[in-house]
Computed example of a mutant assay.
Amino acid sequence: MEAYLSLFGFAFLAATILPAYSEVMLAGMVAAGYDPFMLWAWATAGNTLGSALNWVLGRYLLHFKDRRWFPFRLNSLQRAQSWFQRYGVWTLLLAWMPVGGDALTFIAGMMRVRFIVFFVLTGIGKGVRYAILLGLLDIIGQRIGAGH
């Protein structure tokens, strides 16, 4: 159980602005023989909840946009908001992307996307990403096991 909780924590951190790569841990756990469904469930839950933290930060951190320590430039925020308004909440299905995914979840909070809509769309995208990754790892494992 500790290993699954570690994966959950790593996946949670990976969804925030902190540098963490849950895919590496997931691959190692697959190689060690852990249950793929449990890996999928824990990684998806952790990564989705980490994105929820970004949503909360986006929702409330914007009040501090005039402060010197604010982590984003205002012109970048305005461009991101315009982009999000143009393409809408469905972009949250792409919140799993290594580049820009975390920003999408932060912007969704800034744009006051309803949390349930945010959570469902983000969770679907992240769940599909981990399912694809597990499928690829399975294919690789089969090829290595067959001596290819």
Rank of each mutant, 00 (worst) to 15 (best):
W83D: 04
I107F: 00
D138H: 15
G46S: 09
T48R: 00
D66C: 10
T16K: 08
L7Y: 12
W55K: 10
V117H: 13
F84W: 05
A27Q: 04
W55Q: 06
K65M: 11
V24N: 10
Y34I: 03
V24T: 10
A32W: 10
A108L: 03
I139Y: 15
F12N: 04
F118C: 08
R59C: 06
V99H: 11
L39K: 07
R59K: 09
L7H: 10
M1H: 02
S22G: 08
S82L: 13
L104K: 00
A45I: 14
K65D: 05
K126V: 09
L13Y: 11
G147L: 05
G127M: 10
A27K: 08
R143K: 11
P98W: 11
G100N: 03
G33W: 05
T44G: 12
L92G: 04
R67I: 09
L136S: 12
M111A: 15
A41V: 14
I107E: 04
V120R: 06
R129M: 14
Q78A: 11
Q81K: 06
M38Y: 12
L26I: 00
L61K: 08
A14H: 07
N47T: 09
L53C: 11
M38I: 09
W42G: 01
W55R: 09
G28E: 10
A146C: 01
L77C: 01
G123Q: 00
D138Y: 15
L39S: 05
L13T: 11
S6W: 12
A41H: 01
F70R: 00
L133M: 12
L18S: 02
R73D: 12
L77G: 01
A80F: 10
A103I: 14
A95R: 08
S22A: 14
W55P: 00
A108I: 01
R114E: 13
F119A: 07
E2K: 14
M29L: 13
F84E: 04
V89F: 02
W42K: 07
Y21T: 13
K126R: 09
F37E: 09
E2M: 13
G125V: 07
W42V: 04
L94E: 01
L49R: 01
D66V: 00
N54A: 11
L39H: 06
A14Q: 02
A80D: 00
V117I: 13
N47H: 14
L53N: 06
P36T: 02
S76P: 03
R86A: 11
A32T: 10
I107P: 02
E23Y: 10
L13W: 06
G123F: 04
A27T: 05
T44C: 09
P98I: 05
R67G: 03
A52M: 14
G101R: 07
T48D: 13
V120S: 01
F118V: 05
G125A: 10
A14T: 04
G125T: 07
